[in-house]
Amino acid sequence: MKIQLKIWRQENARAQGRMVDYELTDINPEMSFLEMLDVLNEQLIQKGDMPVEFDHDCREGICGQCGLFINGRAHGPQEATTTCQLHMRHFKDGDTIYVEPFRSRAFPVIKDLRIDRSAFDRIIQAGGYISTRTGDAPEANAIPIGHDVAEAAFDAAACIGCGACVATCKNASAALFTGAKVSHLAMLPQGQPEAAERARKMVAQMEAEGFGHCTNTGACEVECPQEISIRHIARMNFEYNRAGALKK
Protein backbone atom coordinates (compact mmCIF):
# COMPACT_ATOMS: atom_id res chain seq x y z
CA MET A 1 0.00 0.00 0.00
CA LYS A 2 0.94 3.63 -0.54
CA ILE A 3 0.93 6.20 2.25
CA GLN A 4 1.76 9.83 2.82
CA LEU A 5 3.47 10.63 6.12
CA LYS A 6 3.66 13.91 7.97
CA ILE A 7 6.24 13.49 10.71
CA TRP A 8 7.46 15.84 13.42
CA ARG A 9 11.19 16.43 12.93
CA GLN A 10 13.17 18.24 15.59
CA GLU A 11 16.98 18.38 15.70
CA ASN A 12 17.34 18.48 19.48
CA ALA A 13 15.58 19.62 22.65
CA ARG A 14 16.20 23.30 21.97
CA ALA A 15 15.66 23.37 18.22
CA GLN A 16 12.48 24.49 16.56
CA GLY A 17 10.65 21.48 15.09
CA ARG A 18 8.32 21.14 12.13
CA MET A 19 6.16 18.64 10.27
CA VAL A 20 7.94 17.06 7.28
CA ASP A 21 6.26 15.13 4.43
CA TYR A 22 7.40 11.67 3.31
CA GLU A 23 5.95 9.16 0.90
CA LEU A 24 6.17 5.37 1.12
CA THR A 25 5.02 3.25 -1.78
CA ASP A 26 5.49 -0.38 -0.95
CA ILE A 27 4.05 -0.95 2.51
CA ASN A 28 2.80 -4.38 3.48
CA PRO A 29 -0.51 -4.08 5.40
CA GLU A 30 0.68 -6.80 7.80
CA MET A 31 3.55 -4.61 8.97
CA SER A 32 3.36 -2.99 12.37
CA PHE A 33 3.41 0.79 12.53
CA LEU A 34 6.99 0.75 13.82
CA GLU A 35 8.09 -1.59 11.03
CA MET A 36 6.65 0.91 8.58
CA LEU A 37 8.82 3.59 10.24
CA ASP A 38 11.81 1.22 9.99
CA VAL A 39 11.23 1.03 6.23
CA LEU A 40 11.14 4.81 6.07
CA ASN A 41 14.37 5.03 8.06
CA GLU A 42 16.12 2.51 5.80
CA GLN A 43 15.26 4.68 2.82
CA LEU A 44 16.38 7.86 4.60
CA ILE A 45 19.71 6.27 5.55
CA GLN A 46 20.27 5.08 1.97
CA LYS A 47 19.70 8.63 0.78
CA GLY A 48 22.15 9.90 3.39
CA ASP A 49 19.45 11.64 5.45
CA MET A 50 19.02 11.46 9.21
CA PRO A 51 16.60 8.69 10.24
CA VAL A 52 13.51 9.58 12.27
CA GLU A 53 14.19 8.85 15.94
CA PHE A 54 11.46 7.19 17.96
CA ASP A 55 11.33 5.23 21.22
CA HIS A 56 10.69 1.49 21.24
CA ASP A 57 11.97 -1.58 22.98
CA CYS A 58 9.93 -4.76 23.33
CA ARG A 59 7.64 -4.27 20.35
CA GLU A 60 5.16 -6.59 22.00
CA GLY A 61 3.08 -4.13 24.00
CA ILE A 62 4.63 -4.62 27.42
CA CYS A 63 7.46 -2.14 27.94
CA GLY A 64 5.65 1.15 27.37
CA GLN A 65 8.51 2.74 25.44
CA CYS A 66 6.73 3.29 22.15
CA GLY A 67 4.33 6.16 22.31
CA LEU A 68 3.38 8.12 19.23
CA PHE A 69 0.54 10.50 18.54
CA ILE A 70 -0.89 9.14 15.30
CA ASN A 71 -3.60 10.91 13.31
CA GLY A 72 -4.66 12.99 16.29
CA ARG A 73 -4.88 10.13 18.78
CA ALA A 74 -2.47 8.74 21.38
CA HIS A 75 -1.17 5.37 20.07
CA GLY A 76 -3.28 5.88 16.94
CA PRO A 77 -6.87 5.04 16.07
CA GLN A 78 -7.07 1.62 17.78
CA GLU A 79 -8.28 1.67 21.36
CA ALA A 80 -6.36 -0.26 24.03
CA THR A 81 -3.36 -0.73 21.74
CA THR A 82 0.24 0.42 22.00
CA THR A 83 1.88 1.98 18.96
CA CYS A 84 3.99 -1.16 18.41
CA GLN A 85 0.85 -3.31 18.32
CA LEU A 86 -0.86 -1.09 15.76
CA HIS A 87 -0.75 -2.54 12.26
CA MET A 88 -0.86 -0.92 8.86
CA ARG A 89 -4.00 -2.86 7.94
CA HIS A 90 -5.90 -0.32 10.05
CA PHE A 91 -5.04 2.33 7.46
CA LYS A 92 -6.20 2.60 3.89
CA ASP A 93 -4.16 2.72 0.73
CA GLY A 94 -3.34 6.34 -0.03
CA ASP A 95 -3.93 7.56 3.55
CA THR A 96 -2.13 10.56 4.97
CA ILE A 97 -0.82 9.79 8.45
CA TYR A 98 0.29 12.41 10.97
CA VAL A 99 2.96 11.25 13.41
CA GLU A 100 3.82 13.48 16.36
CA PRO A 101 5.47 13.02 19.75
CA PHE A 102 3.36 12.88 22.94
CA ARG A 103 3.06 16.47 24.07
CA SER A 104 3.18 18.05 27.50
CA ARG A 105 5.44 20.45 29.34
CA ALA A 106 6.63 17.63 31.59
CA PHE A 107 7.65 15.44 28.60
CA PRO A 108 10.12 17.57 26.62
CA VAL A 109 11.04 16.38 23.14
CA ILE A 110 14.61 15.05 22.97
CA LYS A 111 14.73 14.52 19.23
CA ASP A 112 12.09 13.98 16.53
CA LEU A 113 9.50 11.65 18.13
CA ARG A 114 11.50 10.82 21.25
CA ILE A 115 10.43 12.40 24.50
CA ASP A 116 11.91 12.50 27.99
CA ARG A 117 9.50 10.65 30.30
CA SER A 118 11.79 10.70 33.35
CA ALA A 119 9.11 12.71 35.20
CA PHE A 120 7.26 9.38 35.52
CA ASP A 121 10.37 7.74 36.99
CA ARG A 122 10.63 10.45 39.63
CA ILE A 123 6.96 10.00 40.57
CA ILE A 124 7.63 6.27 41.07
CA GLN A 125 10.79 7.03 43.04
CA ALA A 126 8.78 9.30 45.33
CA GLY A 127 6.70 6.42 46.66
CA GLY A 128 5.73 3.80 44.09
CA TYR A 129 7.40 0.97 46.01
CA ILE A 130 7.22 -0.97 49.27
CA SER A 131 10.09 -1.00 51.73
CA THR A 132 11.12 -4.53 52.55
CA ARG A 133 14.17 -6.44 53.68
CA THR A 134 15.66 -8.13 50.70
CA GLY A 135 17.06 -11.61 50.94
CA ASP A 136 15.52 -14.91 50.00
CA ALA A 137 12.21 -14.65 48.18
CA PRO A 138 9.50 -15.05 50.82
CA GLU A 139 7.09 -17.98 50.72
CA ALA A 140 4.46 -16.99 48.14
CA ASN A 141 1.51 -18.06 50.27
CA ALA A 142 2.68 -16.46 53.54
CA ILE A 143 0.32 -13.50 53.07
CA PRO A 144 -3.13 -14.63 51.98
CA ILE A 145 -4.70 -12.29 49.42
CA GLY A 146 -8.21 -12.84 48.09
CA HIS A 147 -8.55 -13.56 44.40
CA ASP A 148 -10.73 -10.48 43.76
CA VAL A 149 -8.25 -8.18 45.47
CA ALA A 150 -5.32 -9.71 43.64
CA GLU A 151 -7.11 -9.28 40.31
CA ALA A 152 -8.10 -5.66 41.05
CA ALA A 153 -4.58 -4.78 42.16
CA PHE A 154 -3.18 -6.44 39.08
CA ASP A 155 -5.49 -4.41 36.83
CA ALA A 156 -3.84 -1.27 38.24
CA ALA A 157 -0.35 -2.80 38.20
CA ALA A 158 -0.70 -3.41 34.46
CA CYS A 159 0.24 0.22 33.71
CA ILE A 160 3.29 0.23 31.44
CA GLY A 161 4.12 3.91 31.94
CA CYS A 162 3.72 4.83 28.29
CA GLY A 163 2.40 8.35 28.91
CA ALA A 164 -0.61 8.13 26.57
CA CYS A 165 -2.83 9.29 29.42
CA VAL A 166 -0.84 12.53 29.70
CA ALA A 167 -0.70 12.99 25.93
CA THR A 168 -4.44 12.70 25.45
CA CYS A 169 -5.41 14.76 28.51
CA LYS A 170 -6.52 18.33 27.85
CA ASN A 171 -4.74 19.30 31.09
CA ALA A 172 -1.66 17.09 30.59
CA SER A 173 -2.55 15.39 33.85
CA ALA A 174 -0.64 12.35 35.09
CA ALA A 175 -3.51 11.30 37.37
CA LEU A 176 -4.15 7.95 35.65
CA PHE A 177 -0.51 6.89 35.81
CA THR A 178 -0.03 8.02 39.42
CA GLY A 179 -3.49 6.79 40.41
CA ALA A 180 -2.75 3.34 39.01
CA LYS A 181 0.39 3.05 41.10
CA VAL A 182 -1.07 4.46 44.33
CA SER A 183 -4.16 2.32 43.92
CA HIS A 184 -2.28 -0.89 43.07
CA LEU A 185 -0.22 -0.80 46.26
CA ALA A 186 -3.02 0.54 48.46
CA MET A 187 -5.10 -2.54 47.65
CA LEU A 188 -2.49 -5.05 48.78
CA PRO A 189 -1.50 -5.83 52.37
CA GLN A 190 2.17 -5.26 51.52
CA GLY A 191 1.36 -1.71 50.50
CA GLN A 192 -0.62 -0.79 53.61
CA PRO A 193 2.14 0.35 56.01
CA GLU A 194 3.28 3.12 53.65
CA ALA A 195 -0.07 3.89 52.01
CA ALA A 196 -0.52 7.37 53.50
CA GLU A 197 3.04 8.48 52.96
CA ARG A 198 3.02 7.07 49.44
CA ALA A 199 -0.12 8.96 48.44
CA ARG A 200 1.25 12.21 49.85
CA LYS A 201 4.68 11.92 48.27
CA MET A 202 3.56 10.74 44.84
CA VAL A 203 0.92 13.46 44.59
CA ALA A 204 3.48 16.07 45.64
CA GLN A 205 5.94 14.80 43.03
CA MET A 206 3.27 14.79 40.33
CA GLU A 207 2.65 18.44 41.17
CA ALA A 208 6.36 19.30 41.22
CA GLU A 209 6.85 17.81 37.74
CA GLY A 210 4.34 20.31 36.39
CA PHE A 211 1.54 17.98 35.29
CA GLY A 212 -1.94 19.49 35.17
CA HIS A 213 -4.99 18.65 37.28
CA CYS A 214 -7.53 15.94 36.54
CA THR A 215 -10.95 17.06 35.32
CA ASN A 216 -12.32 13.54 35.00
CA THR A 217 -13.08 13.75 31.29
CA GLY A 218 -12.22 10.04 31.03
CA ALA A 219 -10.20 10.44 27.81
CA CYS A 220 -7.19 8.70 29.41
CA GLU A 221 -8.95 5.44 30.17
CA VAL A 222 -10.09 5.22 26.55
CA GLU A 223 -6.57 5.73 25.17
CA CYS A 224 -4.73 3.69 27.81
CA PRO A 225 -3.34 0.56 26.11
CA GLN A 226 -3.81 -1.33 29.40
CA GLU A 227 -7.37 -0.07 29.90
CA ILE A 228 -6.60 1.27 33.37
CA SER A 229 -9.89 2.58 34.82
CA ILE A 230 -10.26 6.15 36.10
CA ARG A 231 -11.70 4.59 39.27
CA HIS A 232 -8.05 4.30 40.25
CA ILE A 233 -7.81 8.09 40.14
CA ALA A 234 -10.71 8.25 42.58
CA ARG A 235 -8.92 5.77 44.81
CA MET A 236 -5.77 7.89 44.71
CA ASN A 237 -7.84 10.94 45.71
CA PHE A 238 -9.40 8.91 48.50
CA GLU A 239 -6.02 7.69 49.72
CA TYR A 240 -4.61 11.21 49.59
CA ASN A 241 -7.52 12.69 51.50
CA ARG A 242 -7.45 9.90 54.04
CA ALA A 243 -3.72 10.52 54.53
CA GLY A 244 -4.47 14.18 55.19
CA ALA A 245 -7.36 13.48 57.54
CA LEU A 246 -5.45 10.90 59.62
CA LYS A 247 -2.15 12.79 59.64
CA LYS A 248 -0.52 12.62 63.05
Binding site: G17, N71, G72, R73, R105, T168, G210
Partner: peptide, 12 residues
Protein backbone atom coordinates in the same frame (compact mmCIF):
# COMPACT_ATOMS: atom_id res chain seq x y z
CA UNK B 1 1.21 22.02 31.88
CA UNK B 2 0.09 21.45 28.31
CA UNK B 3 2.87 23.67 26.96
CA UNK B 4 2.92 25.93 23.95
CA UNK B 5 3.41 23.31 21.22
CA UNK B 6 0.05 21.82 20.29
CA UNK B 7 -0.70 18.89 18.02
CA UNK B 8 -0.72 19.52 14.27
CA UNK B 9 -3.59 17.07 13.96
CA UNK B 10 -5.79 16.74 17.01
CA UNK B 11 -8.66 14.27 17.31
CA UNK B 12 -8.60 13.91 21.07
Amino acid sequence: AVGSQGYAYDRR
